[in-house]
Write a protein that binds this DNA or RNA. Structure first.
Length: 446
DNA sequence: AACCTGCACAACCGCTCATAT
DNA sequence: AATATGAGCGGTTGTGCAGGT
């Protein structure tokens, strides 16, 4: 770091040096380096006062100059965190209410550990607060051997999704997510990938799980309305786990209630994006260690030996529009909870954007389209050509990122919301194939 | 009273991403 | 295009308190 050509040496002292004269800012004379000793550890009231004054005067941002201009012996990162998590005037200081807790559970079931995304639904709360709340709760439930998601979450999802199967859940964060915990658990083996989807006409309906059919080995057919209601393991966002990441066979394991011997693979490559309708692709982490946190799915899986098939649309089907008043699952939950919340809820909470509000403002042209054509690939081929598969997955991931970016750009359009007509999906085909544990393909349909 | 445990909260760390140069 | 920098995010750790033994 330099300051007008002069080197600045920053020394960070631990908190036990607070009373030590080393904590004093050290600036050498003209020719020597400027030594700035920065503190760590808990903030003092005086530091809070200085930072508050500074931010009030100069506004947020440019955190790295705060130290220079305010005399605070804290790094910019620390200042930013302190302001955002503690000093901001719009923060709520009251304990987390049951209603907020409920929202967090719902959000987590959809978003996973995307704390920063949850903040927009919980005005006055910080990502750190939400994260701490969740982790504490999770730890507590784990100890009690209880599920991280209560039954009502599941039932709520069922009710909502049965009525609105083509809603926007997946579009919210780019995928149909299972209760997040579920994607982190394991048991006996079953795995899914989504094989093909997407060609270039920007129309799609088949990736919504509602459009998939699930058939077990007894030829029973289940409508896979959503990951919850169909009893299938839900589709999850890509995992960061190297063991099951891009290019790897994706396994998900069920515990006791679920098909202990089945093993299905929905292989996937290319695109799994859907806009307007939900979409998903699977990445089930089979390497986790806490099957106790699984909760029963509505349809018992012990007879569903996970043969799944998605129908391939012969023609493109216009996705349904998702008007703001037509709430999706998360939307409904948030609405319900907020409407039941205490009257002293902050005014902002009633103005906070809902999922549909946000989605309704996305210019659909800003959403990513497919970048490659449909190409069928058998699982055998898939695994024997790992490089190509990896490339496909990387491309898919790229599309996902693009889509998420588009979603996250929504708020800036809120002042002039453009109706989201929902026809930005991708035509797709989806093939779900079934394999026995040895890897032999058991059945195949088109 | 001393110790232990659980909990909530605060803060830090490492990393990624966006932007500027 | 490459690099530097700032900002933000998520995971982890540290700390203080309360309650139980």
């Amino acid at each position: 770091m330099t300051n007008g050509g002069k080197e600045i040496v920053m020394i960070i002292w631990e908190d036990d040096a607070i009373e030590d004269d080393r904590t004093k800012k050290k600036e050498c004379s003209n020719d020597g380096p400027v030594v700035v000793a920065l503190r760590k550890g808990p903030w003092t009231a005086e530091e809070d006062r200085i930072l508050t004054e500074y931010v009030t005067k100069h506004g947020e941002g440019n955190w790295n100059v705060v130290q220079k201009n305010s005399g605070l012996l804290r790094c910019g990162k620390s200042c930013r965190l302190r302001w955002i998590n503690h000093l901001r005037p719009d923060l709520r200081k009251d304990p987390m209410s049951p209603e907020e807790a409920e929202i967090i559970v719902e959000l987590h079931s959809i978003l996973g550990n995307k704390w920063a995304k949850m903040v927009q639904f919980l005005p006055g709360r910080t990502d750190n607060e939400i994260k701490n709340f969740w982790n504490t709760r999770r730890k507590r439930l784990k100890r009690a051997k209880l599920a991280s998601y209560p039954d009502n979450v599941q039932l709520q999802v069922l009710n909502e999704e049965q009525q609105q199967q083509t809603q926007i859940l997946g579009a919210f964060d780019g995928g149909i997510n299972p209760p997040y915990e579920l994607s982190q658990e394991n048991g006996s083996e079953i795995s899914y990938c989504i094989n093909e989807c997407a060609n270039s006409n920007h129309q799609m309906d088949s990736f919504h799980p509602a459009n998939m059919l699930v058939q077990d080995f007894q030829s029973e057919i289940y409508a896979l309305t959503d990951p919850f209601s169909a009893g299938l393991p839900p589709l999850v966002h890509l995992s960061d786990e190297p063991e099951c990441g891009l290019g790897s066979p994706i396994y998900y394991q069920f515990t006791n209630n679920f098909a202990p011997s089945c093993s299905s693979v929905i292989s996937r490559n290319d695109h799994a994006l859907v806009c307007g309708n939900s979409f998903g692709f699977a990445s089930f982490d089979g390497l986790l260690d806490e099957p106790m946190e699984l909760f029963p799915l509505p349809i018992p899986f012990d007879s569903v030996d996970a043969y799944a098939q998605a129908h391939v649309p012969s023609t493109s089907v216009q996705s349904e529009c998702v008007p703001p008043q037509n709430d999706g699952m998360l939307e409904a939950v948030v609405h319900q909870v907020l409407s039941n919340s205490r009257p002293q809820s902050t005014p902002e909470s009633h103005n906070s954007p809902t999922v549909s509000d946000l989605l309704a403002t996305i210019p659909h042209e800003s959403l990513p389209g497919p970048k490659s054509s449909v190409r069928e690939m058998s699982p055998t081929e898939e695994f024997s050509r790992p490089d190509e598969f990896v490339n496909d997955q990387a491309r898919l991931s790229e599309d996902m990122t693009e889509f998420l970016d588009a979603v996250e750009r929504k708020p800036q359009h809120c002042g002039n919301p453009a109706p989201f007509n929902g026809d930005v999906g991708l035509d797709s085909s989806l093939e779900i194939r079934n394999f026995d544990p040895s890897g032999q393909e058991k059945h195949e349909t088109s």
